[in-house]
Design a binder for these strands. Structure first.
Lengths: 296, 296
DNA sequence: ACCTCTTACGAGACGCGTAAAGATA
DNA sequence: TATCTTTACGCGTCTCGTAAGAGGT
């Protein structure tokens, strides 16, 4: 049994598409197919049902899933912990954060407790929500900092991961302002408003999709970066839901104004996730420090 | 990372001898050595310190141990459970029992509850205590039935395994009887009494070694099978500590008699062990049935 | 000298990628 | 026909076992 088989399995169970999963695992599709087959032979039962145009999990495959995730992570954790004990790998702890939080919330937050930086160097990895979740699931990072709303859904099972609220934010529908601080775009008008939106792998995109009623907006641009949307909103290209923390300077300056009514804004949380299982000494120490500055 | 590396590691950490461990793993010693090295490279730190005539665990190696055992077992369990879900592997549950219990205690015990056999076929594997413990640790069997005394020591860590008492027994020093039901051998005499004993891999051997004071006995024969010792005691070849349940017919018939004083007999338990972690549905059902006929 | 682990080397097995084939909408 | 997976095949790599080497007691 090879660990890569488990990782292959997890990739395939996510995409349910051999070609996509093979690409994600950086092997050719036939090689990937063979490796899945090898796993199934090791288990002794098929885990996927292949029809020509769809792949689904068998009941056995579904049963395999939870434990496979847990065990894969446990194996990586064991390796890291052992390295730590050996004295070598006091390797920097990694924290994943979504792009926007990494330059807005994160710097202030981490400076708010002198303990945190004192605990050794911390490695910040910033990526899209989807990529961050994957890193978390693989055990590549110890923490995940992201925007959160209960309706958004998460790949991080609450049995396997726990979280605390470390900050709050608001998603507001913003538009560039005219000279007189009036919104350039208005939802009251009949004209369809050009709308800048998030791609699905973005966490904010998931919140917007799950929470905000689709109005008469015309999607003209998609990005997973809130900063990109902000920049385009500034230029007057359209409206977008942006976290207030990101746009607060522009709002204060009057260059951006709310384009929607009160119901258009959504309070959201900034949460820090970690694996529920007991982690190494360093991780637990850092978690305690984080808990000490927990918000709500 | 390959699962065999973990199993290699566990074998080596037990013997602390590359050649012996290699033999146990059915590979040549150089191949085994390379595989250990591969594991160490995967981890990123040495797990063993090799001096020319001894192998010991590094601190990292020690840290690795507990989790390695748990994870290896979890992997095997996951495989079995998945097979079970697939419907194929409703493979018989296996229970390991020491040789003597497999034909004395086990048959009566398992018949004492009609539930047990109703729960599907049960596969009894009987071997020496040491081999049984190893099967348990590897996850090859779901239960272990063995004689137990608190002083005997066990490889089955109480954090990873739990047990219940399912019966009691007594170790008594027995000898063949003369015509008049007197012991053929007597410890009162000055003559050194020929002594039949258990090899160390036997569970009873461990109890005897840990518990019973060494007297003026001359070891003339060693076996890990109580039945063999019984047979030799019958023939008058010497004395041996035997479980009363094994010898009860001979004692009742008067052909075997106690050769020692009251202090020579030791009450022992018959215990059933299982992994502490939650197991598959079938295992848990069977455990419940076993608990229902627990002795106390 | 003897015991134990590591290194060297040739043979075989195994997994990879490319390319073609099979299967279903 | 288009899309997705499996099969076929040549090739490189990796691991094995044998045999020699190195390091201590």
């Amino acid at each position: 049994m090879d660990l890569i088989w488990f990782e292959d399995y997890l990739a395939l169970s996510e995409t349910l598409n051999f070609s996509k999963a093979a690409e994600a695992r950086h092997v050719t599709q036939p090689a990937f197919s063979r490796r899945i087959r090898a796993l199934e032979e090791w288990v002794g039962a098929p885990l996927f049902v292949r029809t020509t145009h769809s792949v689904t999990l068998t009941r056995a495959g579904e049963h395999f899933h939870t434990q496979a995730e847990i065990l894969t992570r446990a194996l990586h954790q064991l390796r890291r912990e052992t390295l730590e004990v050996a004295g070598r790998g006091a390797g920097p702890l990694s924290i994943a954060a979504t792009h926007v939080l990494s330059f807005t919330f994160f710097p202030k937050w981490v400076r708010s407790s002198e303990k945190i930086l004192a605990l050794g160097n911390l490695n910040l990895i910033s990526d899209s929500m989807l990529a961050c979740e994957r890193m978390m699931l693989r055990g590549d990072v110890s923490f995940l900092l992201c925007h959160y709303h209960r309706s958004m859904g998460s790949r991080l099972d609450t049995r396997q991961f726990k979280s605390i609220v470390v900050g709050t934010d608001t998603l507001v529908l913003l538009s560039a302002a005219d000279g007189d601080r009036k919104s350039r775009w208005s939802l009251q008008n009949d004209e369809t408003v050009p709308y800048l939106t998030y791609s699905p792998q973005s966490g904010l995109g998931r919140i917007v999709a799950s929470q905000l009623v689709k109005r008469d907006l015309k999607k003209i641009f998609t990005s997973h970066l809130a900063a990109t949307l902000l920049s385009m909103v500034r230029s007057g290209d359209g409206v977008a839901w942006l976290p207030r923390t990101l746009a607060e300077d522009d709002i204060a300056a009057g260059s951006l104004v709310e384009a929607g009514d009160a119901k258009s804004s959504v309070p959201i949380e900034i949460r820090l996730f970690r694996p529920a299982a007991r982690q190494g000494q360093e991780v637990e120490a850092l978690w305690s420090a984080f808990e000490a500055i927990e918000v709500g």
